[in-house]
């Protein structure tokens, strides 16, 4: 059963009860204890700047880039995909849904799909050449790498020659799937090995657990 619900104590602040946690576990690859451990992580992230139980973009940015300010195209895309409701904040449920895709045992199809949506900047259903160029320029700036425009064009040409199987100048879902299956390393960042033993990474959940073994 459910003894005094830790999650209900700051009632409206977070407001997840046992049933919610069980539902989140049922909807994901995480068991209830793992959902609770992820809740510890979520709490840490969601109070790093604004203590309101929601992850704001600045908080995600602080965690990933170690700075809350500045522009990062990729961070923006990740945030947008996590923010299912598109209301500018990541709720715990959304956090679980997204991390579920990064689980080592999540279906590869889900990872392929998520990566496609990430790179389809304008959400047209295609990864277009212009988007790829924009992303390449962004990563070069981020990593303070300097490449001539000529070389950038060459890299993109080569990538499209490989990825754009039907030769229509843009990468559709089918092209993308075949491409990443040929280059599985491109999905490496779509898997977080930590998620396999998240309860070890966040053992403090044990003190807060609502669920007895």
């Amino acid at each position: 059963g459910c003894f005094e619900c830790y999650y209900n104590r700051p009632k409206k602040k977070f407001g997840y009860d046992c049933a919610d946690l069980a539902r989140l576990a049922a909807e994901s690859r995480f068991n209830v204890n793992e959902v609770e451990a992820l809740y510890e992580l979520f709490k840490k992230l969601s109070c790093s700047i604004i203590d309101d139980g929601l992850i704001h973009k600045e908080e995600l940015q602080l965690a990933l880039l170690q700075t809350p300010s500045g522009e990062n195209l990729f961070l923006d895309r990740v945030f947008d995909l996590f923010d299912e409701k598109q209301n500018g904040v990541i709720e715990f449920e959304e956090f679980i849904h997204a991390l579920n895709i990064f689980h080592p045992y999540a279906p590869i199809e889900d990872k392929i799909d998520f990566a496609f949506r990430l790179y389809d900047l304008r959400q047209t259903g295609f990864i277009e050449r212009e988007e790829v160029k924009q992303m390449v320029i962004a990563i070069l700036i981020e990593s303070e790498m300097r490449l001539s425009d000529e070389l950038v064009e060459e890299i993109i040409d080569k990538t499209f020659a490989d990825a754009d199987a039907d030769g229509d100048g843009k990468i559709d879902k089918k092209d993308w799937k075949e491409f990443v299956i040929r280059h599985p390393s491109l999905l490496k960042n779509m898997t977080l090995p930590y998620l396999k033993d998240i309860t070890t990474a966040f053992p403090s959940f044990v003190f807060n657990t609502q669920v007895e073994d």
Binding site: L64, V136, I139, L186
Partner: peptide
Amino acid sequence: QPTPMNAFELISMSKGLNLGNLFDE
């Protein structure tokens, strides 16, 4: 001349895409 990298290989190096950093202390 070295073969240029795949564009997506470059892109996937972004810190913004590496969620493993969420678990860093």
